[in-house]
Amino acid sequence: MALGKGILIGHLVTIRRFLLTFTHDFKAGNFLKRRGGGDLPVDFYTRPKNQTTVYQDDKTEGIFTVEYPDERLPVYERLRVLPVLIYDNEDGNVRCTCCNICAKVCPPQCIWMSQAHSPEGKPVTLPEEYYIDMDVCMNCGMCSEYCPFDAIKMDHNFELSNYERHQTHIYSLQDLLVSSEFYAKTHPDAYASVEEVTERGKVSKKKDQRLQKALQLSRG
């Protein structure tokens, strides 16, 4: 056809896209009310009361924007941001045994650790110090992937912006610790996986044995 047909067809594509934005709102019964706005029928100014998670998949057409911070994308369980160390809720034990594997697989070598010692000077299977320099960490998740004790995991919190780095960006043991309860909440599938359940079973059995031994000793 004549010159300009290509451009016209192109315009039709954009118009279709534009209209799709609204048809989907209409279909969802929202009229002009958009995601991310307030509760009134036409309301772009007030903030929604709750943060909503927007799921987008192969069906998504029309508006594509996720209005962070009022809306968010779903957090996938495997999302890797920064590593955290886990302590068990029941007894407060830090799971890390200071086996150094995380430091050995860390590609940019951002993990420093040293083993704790008992008052007699014997090494104990606990970390004395543990640091992660998050200005070097590349969020690769190798540490959590190869940790044999499920002690180090990748956190999901990405909202870490701050105004200073020299005092705050090296995380010590205290900064890194989170509870196993928190971990179970953020990583439900992994927490319920066969590997982690068996690992937890092994650890609790060991703890139990140690407890029994101690009890026997105390009973004399």
Binding site: Y68, P69, R72, L73, V81, L82, M134, D135, C137, M138, N139, C140, F158, E159, L160, S161, N162, Y163, E164, R165, H169
Partner: peptide, 22 residues
């Protein structure tokens, strides 16, 4: 002179927006 640091490698776009809000 840096005003806001956004940690992450790489920070997701949402993290960047978080930094912008900061």
């Amino acid at each position: 002179p840096v005003d806001v640091y956004i940690p992450g490698c790489p920070p997701s776009p949402q993290a960047l927006l978080n930094g912008l809000i900061a």
